[in-house]
Design a protein around this nucleic acid. Structure first.
Lengths: 340, 340
DNA sequence: CTGAAAGCGCTTACAG
DNA sequence: CTGAAAGCGCTTACAG
């Protein structure tokens, strides 16, 4: 084993053939005689030679590598998406590089520079709605990026984003969650998390209001708290709600934007002596690995993140320009109970 | 904005200069006259030109990109390491690609192929001890990889691995944990998780036994259960231990290999009606984001994963061939209590 | 301060 | 089945 950073020329001369022939066996072409192939393979083994994907990428316009832009990996929700996308890419013979979103849009020169300079074959971008002007800025970046390479979106993608995408129908999902809680006898149902100005018609807010309407329940503004999707935000939001309401008006159920928020809600409720799920039912969303180990074990929605990531890769590679919706599943555990 | 995939030739001819001059302004060289620079920059803007890092990488031997090999991203422990490494790399002007370990060693051709073909400037590998033959295989892969690029190790790195590394001193850590539990009055202390045949002198086992010896406590084989570092494994391990022991011999404290195992232990204890921390104290390791939201909130060890990742990047780039140890911190929450 | 030329390590027609 | 040659899009001495 030499590992001398041999090039295709070294292999060719060592095997006594041309570099074109070496290239042929490298790429597995069949029109090479057995003995020639053997000579080349031996030379490759002797030098421990690995072709440079850099040089290879120069000539063949495809780099066979994809990118995925995710808000942050510390949230396991995104780690699941990444894992699903990565595995699918690998199956299809592509590599997949991860770009934390923050590292993209802090580049002064241009949001998409890193992606474009690497000549990726395509990129999956996970969109989050943060505020109207952030939205505008994101859309502009995406449109520019689209000029350079195929883009598939996941996450919270408003319908007016003209991109192929794979998403959940959040509105329908939350509407069903409300129905589920109503079926358990709940009438005072709170919803915690999300951004107030979001104008996406698929947003969870819409489902919340629809679900209430379905059950002919009033919309109580005090039960609707906006905030970031973190445990801290959830803890503060529910805590403030409870502290500001007379106990007889306390919600009997809360829908959390995601499992992180739900974790925070559990903490807030516990701190105020509420027994769960007896006095308060909580349902999360995303079904993180820790959901079954919270107390009480958290009922949540499996949003099939890995399937989402995998499907996005398929759209990216096939070039289909369509918008798909992925199913979800209610995972019942002990955190939601009947009111009596 | 044209996005016509212009090359350096297009820019040069459009600006009326040579490609060498375009290259100079691209790389920010100072020896270019202001007017020439302006002409070039205008042409770049007009074409929305981005240089190809592929072509750039061919000539300059450095790709300015690093790799990191991690067992699995779904465990937030590794997501923290990645985040720390990624951010540090970015600060130093490097990009960082993630390679799940599984995708490395299932390549029939060669474990390191993906890394080598991409001509990475260096790679961080997170090592896990799984079994003696896995260990042998990993070491062989690493040694081969080392012929191609600088390698820095993190994770469970035995001292006979001749590589720069940044690790925790697990033995010392667990020894202190035992002392902490002893200071709370515990004498029946269990340890759950890990691989039995591990011969690393820094391994957690060693610290467990040393800690017991420090406190002049007996080593009780029934209190030592091996297993994978998952919640399921933890739940089964503690469950089996409790079921097989008369209650008066039940441990009053358990040290879990990591927070996942600790989560499982909480579930097993709860299922058997043990009240925590009154009847059973549990301490985890890694201080995952969910630790404060478990019930009871989990006392754990902050192993400074982000700092570990960042430091590994620094060693990789500086080329220092040394082995460093990173500090840890006990994070006291409610899951460990005095025995009386 | 600027340009002509060679070269990085491959792939890809094109001949034979 | 195999090879000579051009070319991918840059950077890097080397001249001037």
């Amino acid at each position: 084993m030499r590992s001398d950073n041999a090039t295709i020329y070294d292999i060719a001369s060592d095997a006594g053939v041309s570099i074109a022939t070496v290239s042929r066996v490298l790429r597995g072409e069949t029109n090479v005689s057995a003995v020639t192939r053997k000579k080349v393979q031996d030379a490759i083994a002797r030098h421990n030679y690995r072709p440079s994907s850099i040089a290879r990428g120069l000539m063949s316009k495809s780099t066979h590598s994809l990118g995925i832009v995710l808000p942050k990996l510390l949230n396991p929700h995104y780690a699941m998406i990444f894992t699903g996308a990565y595995e699918e890419a690998r199956k299809m013979g592509y590599s997949m590089s991860l770009f934390p979103w923050s590292s993209i849009d802090t580049r002064a020169y241009d949001p998409a520079t890193m992606l474009v300079e690497r000549r990726l074959d395509g990129v999956i971008v996970c969109v989050e709605y943060l505020s109207p002007d952030h939205d505008e800025q994101v859309l502009a970046s995406l449109q520019e990026l689209k000029h350079f390479m195929p883009v598939v979106l996941i996450g919270c993608v408003p319908p007016w984003y003209d991109f192929p995408a794979v998403t959940n129908n959040n509105a329908a999902m939350v509407r069903e969650i409300v129905a589920y809680l109503v079926s358990l006898g709940h009438e005072k149902i709170a919803f915690i998390g999300g951004v107030q100005e979001d104008k996406d018609p698929l947003r969870r807010d819409v489902g919340y209001e629809e679900g209430l309407r379905d059950a002919r329940l009033p919309y109580t503004a005090s039960y609707r708290v906006y905030g970031k999707g973190t445990a801290e935000a959830g803890e503060k939001a529910l805590g403030d709600m409870l502290d500001s309401l007379k106990p007889e008006y306390w919600p009997t159920a809360v829908i959390a934007l995601n499992d992180l928020v739900a974790m925070g809600c559990q903490a807030a409720a516990r701190k105020r002596g509420l027994s769960m799920p007896k006095q308060l039912s909580i349902i999360g969303c995303d079904d993180l690995f820790c959901a079954p180990y919270l107390y009480p074990p958290l009922t949540s929605i499996n949003t099939r993140q890995q399937a989402t990531g995998a499907r996005a890769v398929q759209l990216l590679i096939s070039g289909e320009d369509k918008r798909e919706t992925v199913e979800w599943e209610l995972v019942e555990r002990a955190s939601c109970a009947k009111t009596k």
